[in-house]
Design a protein around this nucleic acid. Structure first.
Lengths: 136, 136
DNA sequence: CTTGACCCTGGACTTGGCTCAAAGGTGTAG
DNA sequence: CTACACCTTTGAGCCAAGTCCAGGGTCAAG
């Protein structure tokens, strides 16, 4: 596979794949006679892993640390523990916060929605944001 | 209150407050005789709202849209609905994803932890990341 | 009357994560 | 042979969200 294929399969641009390679998130791929990067199927898995982890709040640097450690042999998996637990704690914290805020948000939203049309202007939803004119 | 006070109360730097003002997230505050920004108590509420919303994945631009709409009168609250519902949907999607990923992550983590010490090198946790040497 | 903490402006710089452009090589189809 | 899609490199540019700095003003305490 040349670069475009795994990129497309993972839903990213070739540019990003090269960027990941430059950032040492991906191993340097083999090259064919013309100097083109040649990838195996596992590249797709890796790219998807990166995307997934990233969409969940892992920074490229965290992903890098995991992938780099992985490449250095099994025994380094102990280190994965630290990284994973830290990031896990982080996401769980965020989870709890995220779980609360939309509650108030949607409570307000629903409360507002239930109002008869003519009362919607009273905008109970806006209790979310305190009056601000005083400072301006 | 001069700028440092509301900033400190909200746990941010005066620089950031000025940045928010420049980005039109905050109304331009009054100035005293020396040209210093003067804030009322509501500024703290606003700053905290910004911080909170931001920490939950709202971009400053989204916060801005909400705050700006708010400043323009109650009738615009209908528009808030769109913004809020969109962001809500977004966070809920993220929520669901976040709920899944750490499950696999911590399942692997726990599985790995339960292994007797001498077997930890087999690194079951690493199933998370597919073998990668083939592409390098 | 100086020191120190605070404030002002404008603009440069940073970090993360891309994204694009320029200038060129490759390879296949018509 | 030409067009075209694809690949290469280097290097610049971009967005968000700040952060810092220079060079200056304000003001209360010692």
């Amino acid at each position: 596979m040349l670069i475009g294929e795994p990129a497309a399969s993972a839903g990213i641009k070739p540019d990003s794949v090269r960027f990941y390679e430059g950032s040492r998130l991906l191993p340097k791929p083999a090259r064919n006679a013309s100097g083109y990067r040649v990838y195996g199927v596992s590249a797709v898995t890796q790219l998807r892993f990166i995307k997934k982890a990233q969409s969940l709040g892992f920074s490229l640097d965290e992903v890098k640390r995991i992938l780099n450690l992985h490449g250095q042999g099994n025994r380094t998996c102990r280190c994965l523990l630290g990284i994973a637990e830290a990031t896990l704690a982080k996401t769980e914290l965020k989870l709890r916060e995220i779980q609360q805020f939309p509650d108030t948000l949607s409570a307000n939203l629903n409360g507002w929605k239930k109002l008869p049309r003519r009362r919607k202007r009273t905008a109970e939803f806006c209790v979310l944001i305190e009056s601000s004119t005083e400072a301006g």
